[in-house]
């Protein structure tokens, strides 16, 4: 009887664990939607903040986040894929590859605030880019690089060696086989991770605090050397700076809802894509 009881209680505790986890998620998302939707409107999306952040919208922050993420991914994706190709196809298997992989994994485990400090020391100060869109995008590119490399490496490794052999047998060189067979075959999987990385990058705050983001800027960036507003930083600033909390908090909720929708949309589409690909996969 005691065994039966233990088993019942044990399994029950698992139900409790999953219920708390998912219950929290639902409360979380519901509360952001509930509080955020009251300020959401077209003019909120497409106008600039006014009256010391107590009124107006988030358009400059949206544009800033778009450019930051776009440029970061534009830099990290080619570099990441090519690094993965090197690791997979050219590097001697053994110590050298495991060293590079340890570096990549270490890079992935570094707290984002340290990336922010690094970006500030290197891009802002040493290279003299100042606090700018460029410094922020470069910093975010470094943040996303290990994720892109790991994902591409996995995707490329899963391409069957038979395809490559067939390509060699037809007289293609290694480069041609990689560019025409290997990468295209791995592309759908790489693409999924690229989308996921974009979502992650768009939501990062700590790396851009000292490299790109500004609290308030009515203008849209005109060059990569301008400071920009960014949605995540905007939320943080609304909550911690300024003196009109009662007017700023609703705007923060609205911004959070937009950011959340953006990120969920991006990662949701990646998940759907992955699901579709798994179904279609034929080799």
């Amino acid at each position: 009887m005691r065994r039966k009881l233990n088993a019942k209680l044990g399994i029950l505790s698992l139900y409790v664990a999953i219920a708390i986890s998912i219950g929290f998620l639902l409360i979380f998302i519901f509360s952001i939607f509930y509080k955020g939707s009251s300020v959401l409107s077209w003019s909120f999306l497409f106008s600039a903040p006014r009256a010391a952040m107590t009124e107006g919208g988030i358009w400059p922050a949206l544009v800033g986040t778009f450019w930051l993420s776009f440029l970061a991914v534009l830099i990290s994706v080619p570099v990441g894929i090519l690094s993965a190709v090197y690791l997979n196809c050219y590097a001697q298997k053994g110590n050298w590859v495991s060293l590079v992989k340890i570096c990549v994994n270490t890079l992935a485990g570094i707290p984002s605030i340290i990336f922010g400090l690094f970006g500030m020391a290197l891009f802002v100060n040493l290279m003299g880019f100042q606090v700018s869109l460029l410094s922020g995008a470069l910093t975010l590119a470094v943040v996303s690089l290990p994720i892109v490399i790991n994902a591409s490496y996995e995707a490329i490794s899963s391409v069957s060696g038979d395809f490559m052999e067939a390509s060699y047998a037809l007289g293609a060189s290694k480069r041609q086989s990689i560019l025409r067979i290997m990468i295209p075959t791995a592309m759908p999987n790489i693409l999924t991770s690229v989308i996921l990385v974009t979502g992650r990058v768009a939501g990062e705050t700590a790396p851009i605090m000292f490299t790109a983001a500004t609290f308030f800027n009515r203008q849209l960036p005109r060059s990569v050397f301008d400071e920009v507003m960014a949605l995540p930083y905007h939320i943080f600033a609304l909550m911690t700076e300024g003196t009109h909390a009662d007017q700023q908090v609703p705007i923060a909720y609205g911004s959070a809802l937009v950011l959340l929708l953006l990120v969920l949309l991006i990662s949701g589409s990646a998940l759907i894509l992955r699901y579709q690909l798994r179904k279609k996969r034929q080799w």
Binding site: F28, I32, G199, G203, A206, V263
Partner: peptide, 8 residues
């Protein structure tokens, strides 16, 4: 849950 930005 893992995809939600930390600032949110």
């Amino acid at each position: 849950l893992a995809g939600i930005p930390s600032v949110v």
